[in-house]
């Protein structure tokens, strides 16, 4: 069995302590939460941190709640907890849709929301879901907290705006009326990374799209979003024809790359197809008419 190279290990007792440890050990240190992205990479010796800082004891990063008109999800919330969260079901079913298809149930017991977002895999699901929801990431460093929109969080594959001595502490999703959201993923097999996936959030004002968010993953969408399709939909009627057109626009603007999950043309097709399907289901949910 493959095993990690040697490293030092520290167990943080609080966010401030974790930041102090990151500062002390520098850029060759890494936070470990669930470890389900990092530890396999360490076994394959693709990742070789000198120090691991364990943040599993950081209770202040746990919990899902409604705070100041927003759904607040702590960075240490495990995937299984978000999947089972009545608050998520009530307000943002896209998160439940996405969680249901992230890895597998045992991995979801351990893997965390923050870990997934910070790993920033270009095929990661929550990045697309939070992008669709216009969520905000809250990041803490030595100088305090700052807020970054989800669609500015990622700076490239496996790269985020979180600094060497910073921690993602929570994600906030503002709650507004008239919303509906959904996530659609094509995978080769249960538990696989997405061939392509699309999430949509709609805020309807009657039959008009007041606000919309579309998140795409695994298809080379910059910042996981489809702004041209969103612009097309915003302010217009929420109709099947326009969802289909939005899918077409989204597909036009993605830059997928071929791999063993599929060729470029197929992934581009899925970007459109899944955008349309997610919009359709999001609208049905917004109208309370989901089949």
């Amino acid at each position: 069995m493959q095993v990690p190279a040697q490293f030092d290990y520290e167990r943080a007792t609080g966010v401030r302590h974790a930041i102090a440890l990151l500062t002390r050990y520098g850029p060759e240190s890494r936070l470990v939460a669930g470890g389900h992205s990092l530890i396999p990479m360490m076994k394959l010796r693709i990742a070789n941190p000198e120090t691991l800082i364990d943040i599993n004891d950081l209770d202040e990063l746990t919990g899902i709640s409604i705070t100041d008109g927003a759904l607040r999800i702590g960075a240490m919330v495990r995937h299984a907890e978000l999947l089972d969260s009545p608050l998520a079901v009530e307000h943002f079913p896209i998160l439940v849709d996405a969680e249901r298809v992230i890895a597998d149930p045992v991995v979801r017991n351990r893997g965390t929301i923050g870990g997934s977002l910070c790993q920033a895999d270009p095929s990661e699901d929550l990045s697309a879901a939070f992008t669709a929801l216009h969520a905000v990431a809250v990041i803490e460093g030595e100088s305090g907290r700052r807020e970054v929109p989800a669609r500015e969080f990622h700076t490239g594959p496996y790269q985020t705006v979180v600094g060497d001595a910073e921690i993602l502490v929570e994600v906030r999703v503002p709650i507004r009326t008239g919303s509906g959201s959904a996530y659609e993923k094509v995978e080769r097999r249960v538990g696989d990374w997405a061939v392509a996936a699309g999430g949509a959030a709609l805020w309807l004002d009657g039959d008009t799209v007041g606000e919309v968010g579309i998140g795409l993953t695994a298809v080379g969408a910059a910042h996981f979003c489809a702004p041209q399709a969103e612009d097309f939909l915003r302010g217009g009627p929420a109709t099947e024809e326009r969802f289909a057109e939005a899918g077409r626009i989204a597909a036009e603007h993605v830059r997928p790359t071929a791999d063993q999950r599929g060729p470029e043309d197929y992934k581009r097709h899925l970007a459109g197809e899944l955008t349309t399907r997610a919009l359709r289901r999001a609208a049905a949910r917004a109208r309370g008419s989901e089949a």
Binding site: M1, Y9, V32, P40, P105, N109, R110
Partner: peptide
């Protein structure tokens, strides 16, 4: 396996099933 995919290593950690190949003993 080496990649947390096969699940033959599952044990319960504080009552929850986890893949013990992807948990450090120190954790």
């Amino acid at each position: 396996c080496d990649t947390s995919n096969c699940g033959v290593c599952v044990v319960q950690l504080d009552g929850q099933p986890v893949k013990s190949c992807t948990v450090l003993a120190v954790m």
